[in-house]
């Protein structure tokens, strides 16, 4: 088998393996958001930053772009890396949108998520310009 062919096979196997982890992630997504919410409600800044970062990178890896962007926003807000600090009400609104996006991760609703994100966007953008 040529090197090129071998490489192709390796990559195909790896893509399949990532698909398996993605399924596991989806089954776990709701719990992760619950843990993030708990850290926010307890005002555990370090916990929020870590959990939001982890979820941000995982959601990006497994194809949840709006979850990624909301988590990035939360990470930046709690790290104080913002243009304008959002109100507690705005944070709560964002968190509720995130919870709704992951309420049934096995049956994602991209149209609903898109609408939610559009509605939230001005609030997100005001605090973190490069959202």
């Amino acid at each position: 088998m040529s090197d090129e062919q071998q490489k192709k096979e390796m990559l195909a196997r790896a893509n399949m393996a990532v698909g398996g982890v993605a399924k596991e992630f989806v089954g776990n997504l709701n719990d992760r958001v619950v843990a993030l919410e708990k850290a926010i409600r307890q005002n555990d800044r370090a916990g929020v930053i870590e959990k939001a970062y982890n979820l941000e990178t995982e959601a990006a890896t497994f194809g949840w772009p709006r979850v990624t962007r909301i988590c990035k926003w939360l990470r930046k807000v709690f790290a104080g890396d913002v243009d304008q600090m959002p109100s507690a009400e705005d944070i709560l609104k964002t968190l509720n949108a995130l919870k709704l996006m992951v309420c049934d991760p096995g049956n994602p609703d991209p149209a609903r998520d898109e609408a939610l994100f559009r509605e939230l966007y001005p609030v997100l953008k005001k605090a973190v310009n490069d959202i």
């Binding site: 982890v21 596991e24 970062y53 982890n54 995982e58 890896t61």
Partner: peptide, 8 residues
């Protein structure tokens, strides 16, 4: 420390 990324 990110379990799913490490697993991936």
């Amino acid at each position: 420390s990110n379990v799913f990324i490490a697993k991936t």
